[in-house]
Structure formats: structure tokens, C-alpha cells
């Protein structure tokens, strides 16, 4: 038997029920949210042993790069980036500037497929590119689930188990350093070979560079090559106006490089 009258009291009760159902779904988030904040507190208190006394930095000496792209191939193999696809954690750009200041840039196959050109440029050089591990990283800011984060020793990483593959971070990176991993379908990018550097090894691109154009080290170690060069040499970062505060520095970078 249905009640004949629907009083204000009844309305309040029904409305409360409807609201309760509406709130139920988001409320499911609470336990998960609590776990996260617990993790954050854990990170705030003692600095993990792994990060103590470390602030990784990367420096590239343009004058020394010969464009062999050893680094590009080695990186793909080391980090499981499909060799036959147009995705790169690092790549090498070739710049040819002619007498009329006309610039020609290319990076076929990320630098793996450079071919001899018939032109005689006034100035030519190679620029290796990789993730800038920005201090103020837009990719971290825009990730909707917090899958991208910065480690205590200064590297931006992607948690492959959390990434939902929305590709917002790819849009937000001003350097084109990110891509969707074609097999795993999650965001991917250079980690400065975090699995290697955490064990005291060098990133593989630094290891295979025949001329020492790529330099990697700890800024908190005053004797490291990177720390000394950063103190003495004149360095530049890419797109400083973006306010991303990159942690990747260049020596001898030409103004035409973006």
C-alpha cells in the first residue's frame, strides 16, 4: 500500500537516500586516498637511503657530439623501446645552417638513419635530446592520477602500474620527450636509466658515447665532472621561458635550437 501523502519529511528522507547513493561512489575513494597520504608522510620523514647525498644532473657538450647515434640505439635496447617504431627516449638532431642563416633540421630514425647531404652548410652540429627531468615539470602537474612523480634524487619517473594512458603528459611536455609506449600503452620517457644509476652505473647513453659528449653525475659531489663544469662553464637549458627549470644543461648550444 503506497502512502497517500508525501510530506516534506518524506521528501527530505527520499532526497537523503538519493544523495547517499550519489556520494557512495566517490566515498569508495577514501581508503585509497588514505593509503596515498600515508605513503607521502613516509616520504617526508626520513630520506630514503638511495637518495641521500644525491642530486643527479646531465650535461651535453655540443662540440663533442659527432652524431653517431650510438646512444639512440643503445637506449632503445636497454630500455625496451621498440626499435622499429617512431618513439624515442633519446634522439639526435642534426642542424645545418647555410650562409643565408637558413636552418635545416632533421633526425631521421631519431638519428639512426642520418645520410650524407650534398649541401655545404656554413655551420653544422648535432644536438642530442632527452628528458630534461625538469625541477618544475609540467608532466607531473597534469597527470590526473599521480602516475608521474619526482624522486628525491631529481629524476622524473612514470609508474607503469598507475598510468592510465590518457596522454595528457605527452601534450604538456614542451620538449617532445614523452610518448605512449606502443606495447605497454602507458606513458614512457627517459629515466636517465634509473635502474642503472641507482646501482652506481652510468646511463647507457653516457656509457656508449665515444666522445664523452654526454656527461652525467651527482651535483652534490663537488668533484664530479658535471658539478665542476656547471660551476665553471657557460651552460644553457632548452626553452627557459617555459619556466620548467630543466635539469639537463648544454655546453655550446646554438640559439636556433628549440
Amino acid at each position: 500500500m503506497v502512502k497517500e501523502t508525501f510530506t516534506r519529511r518524506d521528501f527530505v528522507i527520499s532526497a537523503t537516500k538519493v544523495l547517499a547513493v550519489g556520494i557512495l561512489a566517490p566515498a569508495g575513494a577514501l581508503p585509497a586516498a588514505r593509503r596515498i597520504s600515508a605513503l607521502e608522510t613516509a616520504q617526508q620523514t626520513p630520506v630514503p637511503q638511495l637518495w641521500r647525498g644525491k642530486e643527479w644532473s646531465f650535461l651535453i657538450d655540443i662540440e663533442k657530439c659527432i652524431g653517431c647515434a650510438n646512444c639512440v640505439g643503445a637506449c632503445k635496447k636497454e630500455n625496451g623501446v621498440p626499435l622499429d617504431q617512431e618513439v624515442y627516449r633519446t634522439w639526435v638532431e642534426r642542424y645545418l645552417v647555410d650562409s643565408n642563416e637558413k636552418v635545416r633540421v632533421d633526425s631521421p630514425g631519431g638519428g639512426l638513419n642520418f645520410r650524407q647531404l650534398d649541401i655545404k652548410p656554413e655551420k653544422q652540429f648535432f644536438v642530442p635530446k632527452l628528458c630534461n627531468q625538469c625541477h618544475n615539470a609540467p608532466c607531473i602537474q597534469v597527470c590526473p592520477v599521480g602516475a608521474t612523480y619526482k624522486t628525491g634524487d631529481g629524476v622524473v619517473l612514470v609508474d607503469r602500474k598507475r598510468c592510465i594512458g590518457c596522454r595528457y603528459c605527452i601534450q604538456a611536455c614542451p620538449y617532445g620527450a614523452r610518448f605512449l609506449h606502443p606495447i605497454l600503452k602507458v606513458a614512457d620517457k627517459c629515466t636517465w636509466c634509473y635502474h642503472r644509476i641507482s646501482k652506481g652505473m652510468l646511463p647507457v647513453c653516457v656509457q656508449v658515447c665515444p666522445t664523452g659528449a654526454r656527461k652525467f653525475g651527482n651535483l652534490k659531489d663537488p668533484d664530479s665532472e658535471v658539478a665542476t663544469l656547471k660551476k665553471k662553464a657557460r651552460t644553457r637549458v632548452l626553452k627557459p621561458d617555459m619556466g620548467t627549470k630543466p635539469n639537463l644543461y648544454y655546453l655550446g648550444l646554438d640559439e636556433v635550437v628549440k
Partner: peptide
């Protein structure tokens, strides 16, 4: 469009509040 469809609800379960996109679910 998502690369990981089954993680879609993480956008509400573990939202990252500096991201504009995290607001979508709510």
C-alpha cells in the same frame, strides 16, 4: 581513448589534484 581502460576509475580513486583532468570524474 585510454591506453589502460581498466584503470579509468583511478581518476576518482587516486586523483592528483594539480591536474585539471583529475576533476573530470567528480
Amino acid at each position: 581513448h585510454l591506453g589502460q581502460l581498466f584503470r579509468a576509475f583511478n581518476i576518482m580513486f587516486t586523483p592528483h589534484l594539480t591536474s585539471a583532468m583529475a576533476g573530470f570524474g567528480f
